[in-house]
Design a protein around this nucleic acid. Structure first.
Length: 180
DNA sequence: CCCTGATTCGC
DNA sequence: GCGAATCAGG
């Protein structure tokens, strides 16, 4: 993937909107957050909300040992022509958007209060390790995803995994156990 | 641990 | 110019 003018425009827009580099990378696809940050710097867009750049220590060389060279070699092979990157954010999000909406909306209700606003996820901020439990009406504006941390590859946080993967009877029993 | 942006430097 | 590796921090 190269930085076409379209992609640069989108980068500028999203960066200005305050999205994080990793979020922008996921949105663009085919680039890492490092690439995004590097581009942001080259474009001179950095220092979004920072007033002053407090002159960090110049690192002459991060060298540590021979292992580093091997790591770099491997890196370059990967970068050569491997679009098989894990950038499946969009697909994953869309999938889960359709699935659980039908069933669990009522049970998610009390959870809304448990999810701090800052942690709430939009479809753009979901990653492989954020909880994709939908909260609210997907047709309304206040719809969002749980966004709590989840294990990599697991669509929900532990709390929502319980709801999603246990039969209703088990859940009821669990509550009784917890209460008594 | 998760994440964030910043920097260096080989390519 | 690009971006992985790394640093520094929340």
């Amino acid at each position: 993937m190269s930085w076409t003018s379209e992609r640069v425009d989108l980068l500028k827009k999203l960066w200005t909107d305050g999205l994080s580099a990793s979020q922008i990378a996921a949105e663009l696809g085919g680039v890492t957050r490092n690439a995004v940050i590097g581009k942001v710097h080259r474009l001179g867009l950095s220092g979004r909300a920072k007033a002053a750049a407090p002159a960090q220590k110049p690192r002459s060389k991060p060298a540590k040992g021979g292992a580093e060279e091997a790591a770099q070699a491997a890196t370059q092979q990967q970068g050569g022509s491997a679009p098989s990157a894990p950038q499946t954010i969009g697909a994953t999000a869309l999938k889960v958007e359709a699935a659980p909406v039908a069933a669990p909306a009522p049970q998610a209700k009390p959870v809304a209060e448990l999810v701090p606003i800052a942690k709430r996820a939009t479809i753009l901020t979901l990653t492989e390790r954020t909880c994709k439990w939908p909260i609210g009406d997907p047709t309304k504006e206040d719809f969002y995803f749980c966004g709590h941390p989840s294990n990599p590859g697991v669509p929900y946080c532990t709390y929502h995994c319980r709801i999603a993967y246990q039969p209703a009877s088990d859940r009821r029993r669990d509550r009784n156990v917890a209460n008594g």
